[in-house]
């Protein structure tokens, strides 16, 4: 158990995607759980390596789409059949073929909105402050460097032992992250 509070975690730097994947797998096997990896582009297998498996996003989008479709149809039904029935072109009030284009659009609208907002919410974005940005080298995480972070709140975390462990994984450098 870590007693230090002036430390958020240790950040190890790598120069290739497969190295950070390997390092993450080793760290996970070693028993570390509170960790994250940062890369300039999506790296296959990295999320799995740090113990992330499924996202609930598809379900959120499906529900968003169903809600949008139901809302669209309900709106049209209420407007055209109940509240303001008007004969147009000899068509019945409940002209379902003519409703379909609008219902389709509202379905897509709400599904797309839930995809974006759901992704941002699950990711906790926008986030105005995060400790990793205190490491100057971290600016390269959006260019060509790959980072593995082990957080200090991990039960297995030990300032020295974890540092040695990360260095042994072939990191180009290990930095302390201030909280």
């Amino acid at each position: 158990m870590s007693e230090r509070t002036d430390l958020y975690g240790l950040l190890a730097e790598f120069d290739a995607p497969e190295k950070v994947v390997a390092a993450a797998q080793r760290a996970y096997a070693e028993g570390y759980r509170q960790m994250d990896a940062y890369t300039p582009f999506p790296v296959e297998g990295l999320a799995e390596a740090i113990g992330f498996h499924r996202t609930r996003l598809p379900m959120i989008v499906l529900l968003g789409g169903l809600f949008g479709g139901a809302l669209g149809y309900a709106l049209l039904y209420y407007a055209e059949v109940i509240d303001y029935p008007l004969i147009v072109g000899g068509k019945p009030f409940h002209s379902w073929p003519a409703f379909i284009p609008i219902v389709f659009e509202t379905t897509i609208f709400f599904a797309a909105l839930s995809a974006v907002l759901g992704m941002l919410a699950l990711n906790g974005l926008p986030m105005p402050y995060h400790p990793v940005f205190n490491v100057p080298r971290f600016a390269l995480a959006s260019r060509d460097r790959f980072f593995l972070l082990i957080e200090a709140r991990d039960p297995k975390f030990d300032r020295e032992a974890t540092r040695r462990f990360l260095e042994a994984l072939g990191a180009d450098g290990v930095w302390e992250v201030e909280p």
Binding site: G89, G90, K91, P97, A98, I100
Partner: peptide
Amino acid sequence: TFSQFLIIWSGN
């Protein structure tokens, strides 16, 4: 299929 139906249904 739906496009053909909708256009012909509307035109009547």
